[in-house]
Amino acid sequence: MAPRDRRLLLALTVVALLAIPPVTALFAAGTPKLARPYPDKLAAGSGQALGEQRCVMCHNATLITQQHKDSAGWARTIGTMKTWGTPLDSAETDTLLRWLAATYGPRPRANAAPGSR
């Protein structure tokens, strides 16, 4: 490929990437160093797929990954979400609950997020 064509391809690639809103936003905002204290991906395990399909439809994963509750706590949360329309049958509820309690169970406080203390 001629160098000029390579440059054109590079330019088109950049334009295509900038069509993705998050990428556009990053450039527009001057690539800010945002403090994001929690993982935005659910941990691997038996309930991960259910979590991604049924929970992350209304809020992103960090609302789950920042919480550390016992089984009773997660059961209350799942109960509220089901009342509010999250589609989960009893087998799925059981899978999700066991995975949440095992993966995001009680633990000592982690270090504070940058700037928060």
Partner: peptide, 16 residues
């Protein structure tokens, strides 16, 4: 996502 907040903000959850 298209209105990323100020770097002075800690994003505890993106949406809501």
């Amino acid at each position: 996502l298209t209105a990323l907040p100020s770097p002075d903000l800690i994003v505890r959850n993106e949406w809501p």
